[in-house]
Design a protein around this nucleic acid. Structure first.
Length: 442
RNA sequence: GUCCCCAUCGUCUAGAGGCCUAGGACACCUCCCUUUCACGGAGGCGACCGGGGUUCGAAUCCCCGUGGGGACGCCA
């Protein structure tokens, strides 16, 4: 049987690293199993969904390289859900409810204040035909709940092992609102069946939903897929990811010049017992991927760790792999320049720092004016090449009887304004004769 | 409040009663390499949440605490 997974975001916001992880894990599992990966846009909530967010999601996935073999959107399938509505109604498991959202909210608050779980009390089940006729006459369009069986519903989860929930601990879910508009719970189950999804890999926030979805799937005559619920990601200090959307949205990581493969590398292994390694391609990340290695504890996503990985990946990338991205960031960098500064970059956007060093506005650090004056006097004339620095410092060394750090550090600071950076031999010609003279003029 | 789940170095984790003076990876520190930084090489620091049991023996099993995560929506 061909494995088929899906990533099913709702286009109501931007993707963050938590979403990206679920997309990636589904993609990796499908690819590794020789299966199919599907992108499904869960946009049953028409009011909150937007085309702009849908585009953003597709862009983000493309950036990460998570290509999909099939795509669908739920708003195109309302006709199908309408058929299911009739089918479920005929089965007797669907019942109309007339409470307003406010009434339900109040009920929950009362239950909670009494220390009881906020479960739906099934009051609508006690309605008589004449009650319903009266309510309908008042013009109230009912919402429809699915009557859960009061029994254990269980499954063998790929991550959590045997899991079960008792129906009495769950509320009868609303499947259709305002007449017959489908909601997520219904559409998701129908789509998983219709598109023959074999493995549903998602966050553990869906664990309790799974019992409901299995009951629903079986009521529709389907066979539930295999489920895998991975723990959610938290921020480096245990904070909720969505609260940090500012810095952990894929969009902002792109803006910072973080490599897609750094994100993929981290996300493909974080929370598993396999070591996190810098992968240059998704193929490499797929090779050692083992979904059974994922644990059950909440893992923390640390930006610092991401940047370390990013640096390691950046140090291995040829100019051709980054030139387009550099342009997209609005920077102009030659291959020579790239090779010179590459080992000193953590993020692509760090290029600016070295561009400034080779620009006109740099503020030199002069620690020893007399020495700098001597250096200027011995500066070789242009044209320069990669041997100029060596010749210059050799001459300067014998003249001033300085060597080692005492010899080159004052020069590095005067010429770059920093005490670390690329090899001065290659950097010197990139700064250029005129700027060097200017920086050494004290 | 109720129902699930989890609890080992800073982080991700290995560990399924003796193989554990608890292993690895990343981070960190030191040294070597290097006319800086980085890379690379060699070392080092560093953890079983607490309390009770069970057992000859517990990181490992049980109970109770405590802590953390998730769920309980006409969102997904």
């Amino acid at each position: 049987m061909t494995v088929k997974t899906r990533f099913a975001p709702s286009p109501t916001g931007k993707l963050h690293v938590g979403n990206a992880r679920m997309a990636l894990v589904n993609w990796l599992y499908a690819r590794q199993q020789g299966g199919v990966f599907m992108l499904r846009l869960d946009d049953t909530d028409v009011a909150r969904s937007s085309e702009a967010f849908a585009d953003g999601i597709r862009q983000d996935l493309n950036w990460l390289g998570l290509t999909w073999d099939k795509t669908a959107r739920q708003s195109d399938r309302f006709g199908r859900y309408k058929d299911i509505f009739e089918q479920l109604k005929a089965s007797g498991r669907l019942y109309p409810c007339y409470e307003t959202a406010e009434e339900l909210d109040l009920k929950r608050k009362v239950q909670l204040s009494q220390g009881k779980p906020p479960l739906y009390d099934r009051a609508a089940l006690k309605l008589t035909d004449s009650d319903r006729t009266r309510l309908a006459a008042e013009g109230i369009a009912p919402h429809w709940r699915f009557q859960l069986l009061a029994e254990d519903t269980g499954w063998t989860d790929m991550n959590r092992g045997d899991v079960k929930f008792h129906g009495s601990n769950l509320s009868d879910p609303i499947l259709f609102r305002a007449g017959s508009e489908p909601v997520y719970m219904l559409a998701s189950v129908v789509d998983d069946m219709d598109f023959a999804i074999t493995h549903v890999i998602r966050g553990e926030d869906h664990v309790a939903n799974t019992a409901i979805q299995i009951q629903l799937c079986e009521a529709l005559g389907g066979i539930p897929p295999v489920y895998c619920h991975l723990p959610l990601l938290r921020g480096a200090h245990g904070e909720e990811l969505s609260k940090r959307l500012g810095s952990l949205s894929l969009e902002s990581l792109w803006d910072e010049g973080i490599e897609a493969m750094a994100i993929n590398s981290l996300l493909a292994r974080l929370g598993s017992s396999d070591p996190i390694e810098p992968y240059l391609t998704l193929r490499e990340a797929t090779a050692g991927f083992d979904i059974s290695k994922f644990g059950r504890a909440t893992a923390k996503f640390d930006r610092v760790e991401l940047e370390h990985l990013n640096a390691r990946i950046l140090h291995d990338l040829p100019y051709t792999a980054v030139s387009e991205k550099i342009q997209a960031l609005g920077l102009a960098v030659s291959e020579t320049f790239w090779q010179a500064v590459q080992p000193n970059l953590t993020k692509l956007s760090d290029l600016q720092e070295w561009l400034d060093v080779c620009g006109d506005t740099l503020q030199p650090i002069i620690t020893d004016p007399d020495f700098i004056r001597q250096a200027l006097a011995l500066l070789p004339p242009a044209p320069w090449d990669n041997t100029t620095w060596g010749a210059w410092t050799k001459a300067l060394g014998s003249k001033t009887e300085r060597k080692g750090k005492a010899l080159f550090m004052p020069l590095r600071q005067a010429l770059t304004g920093k005490d670390h950076g690329p090899d001065m031999g290659v950097l010197l010609p990139l700064i250029g004769y005129d700027r060097v003279v200017k920086r050494l003029a004290v």
